[in-house]
Each structure stands twice: as structure tokens, then as C-alpha cells.
Amino acid sequence: MYDTSDIRKNLKIVLDGAPYAVVDHQFVKPGKGQAFTRTKLKNMITGAVLEKTFKSGEKLEKAEMEERQMQYLYPEGDAWVFMDTGSYEQINLGGDLLGDTPDYLQDGMMVDVLFWGEKPIGVTPPTFVELEVVETEPGYKGDTTSNVGKPATLSTGKVISVPLFVNQGDLLKIDTRTGEYVERVKR
């Protein structure tokens, strides 16, 4: 259990049977009256944000969160199959839960799966991944400084903006937090 004095950004709590992360919080105390903590909470499953005011000293249920490293194996229907490399236990995770992770998934990639108790609620890919360009306009040799970009399709199907010198078959480093090109990787 937490109480209101524990409230800080990113604290994970359970409210009405769902896990929430604290996005914002403010101490409010009118006159010589009771103190409150006004919060903005993000539902960690749906992403919905709500505002909730707690009385000072009110108890909050802690959301037990655990992040486990799991290996991506293969797609299956609308889902993706991941394996715990310690226990060899496999789980199927559906699309909503993965967010934009499928844009970066490669065979054998290790990802962080967030569990709320026994329930998987989110997947975070590595911060940087390396993906091959399968389609783009031919590159311009020597143009390594231009800020102008062009679209390129990656092996996962994701389309990103890349510098003009990038060619089909190049291996690119991508930042999965922003979905942006970082640099060309030597093979």
C-alpha cells in the first residue's frame, strides 16, 4: 500500500481494478482545511488519462509491476509469440498491447514485457534496432550532409524518412522511442 505522501511521477497504482501510472500531481490545501493531492493518471492498458483527487493520508493500492526480458519467436495470426528464455514458457501477445513494437520486431529479438501481476500489459523493444532498407529511391553519392529526406521502406514494412544518400539494402540504426533514423550501419 502507498499513501498520498508517496505520490510522485510514474508511481504505479491500482484504481477500480486497472493499473495506472501517475502522470502529474499537485498538492492542494485550502485554508486551514484538509489537504488533497490532485493527480492526472494514465491507464496503463488503455492509455486513457483521467483526473483524480485523493484526500491526504488516503491509501492507494500498489500496482505490482515486473518487467521480464523475452525473446520474439514468430507471428501467429493476429498475435506475436514470445518466449521466456529462462523457463522456455511461451506467450501469445495481441496487437493492441504491442503498440508500435511490430514495426521493429525481428526474429530472435529480445524485448521487455511488462507484467501487472501475471497479466502482460505492454512490450518495449530495444531503444535502438538495426533494420534493412528494402525499398527506396536510388541514393545520391556524396550527398552526406543534406537535411532533405526521402521515404524508405524497412524490412518490417515500416516507412521512415531517411537522408538522400541511403540505398536499398543498407542497414540503418533506428531509435524506437521516436521511430526516427539515427545512422547508417556498416555491415
Binding site: V28, P30, G33, Q34, F36, R38, T53, K55
Partner: peptide, 14 residues
């Protein structure tokens, strides 16, 4: 119910 009073004070009146 003072808690209710202060809740309305900060959420509605202020």
C-alpha cells in the same frame, strides 16, 4: 462532512 466541503471548495468554488 468536511472532506466533502473541501472537495467542493477546491473542485468547484475555487
Amino acid at each position: 462532512d468536511e472532506a466533502r466541503f473541501f472537495e467542493l471548495l477546491i473542485d468547484r468554488v475555487e
